[in-house]
Write a protein that binds this DNA or RNA. Structure first.
Lengths: 105, 105
DNA sequence: TGAATTGTGGCACTGAGTGCTATAGAATAG
DNA sequence: CTATTCTATAGCACTCAGTGCCACAATTCA
């Protein structure tokens, strides 16, 4: 419950910030700083970490790949260190790591 | 509220399915079919659609890029049709389109 | 037994994504 | 008013992520 509460609170704060921004109370610069500070940090993930995330979710590479909209071939390569996820892929993996597979359903 | 309720319900159902799977009640094949049917469909997005999504969230290309963990340069190219998002990027954009920027915070 | 799933492995290819720079207009600060 | 910052577009070169294909062995299920 605490996790859900936290994200709901964040969503509420965000909405408030957006309203303030729409009303011209705060500028985009402030908005930008705020957003940047709020984002879930995205750190590079090691092959074993990726495999650990997937196994914690009790899914095969194939199912995992479907959730992330990538090929199962790629998931295999991530976990063996043949390819390293970057940019959008890292973001998705970080989201799953923090919030579980449900957030990308 | 209805949106939150829906995702919570889905999360609960998923947990139940996982428990069933752990208990050996259902097999991985069934799990796979279930997951595939549950996923948010990811359709290719047109440049204008991407721009519409971002503007609906009241953020600049730069802020939007930070959320998705890509460069602002790339967001610009998406919106002008110079590059087309694919795989993980499309998944992220679809998530934002359906659930708002909060889900990738 | 036969059929399907899972994971590894390899190979070639395309283009997504990065990084840099420059530009111009709009907004903000001082 | 001026100086600075943010905004978005634009171009260019480059790397390697991601795709698609195949084959293989081990496992699981009908």
């Amino acid at each position: 419950m605490s996790r859900k509460y936290r994200s709901d609170a964040m969503a509420a704060i965000h909405e408030m910030m957006e309203d303030l921004h729409d009303g011209g109370v705060i500028d985009k610069k402030t908005m930008r700083r705020f957003d940047h500070a709020c984002l879930t940090p995205v750190r590079p993930l090691k092959p074993k970490e990726i495999k650990a995330i997937r196994e914690r979710e009790h899914v095969s590479q194939s199912v995992f790949a479907n959730y992330l909209n990538v090929t199962s071939s790629l998931v295999s390569k991530w976990e063996r260190g043949e390819k390293r996820p970057s940019g959008p892929s890292l973001k998705l993996l970080s989201l799953v790591e923090k919030n579980g597979l449900a957030v990308v359903s």
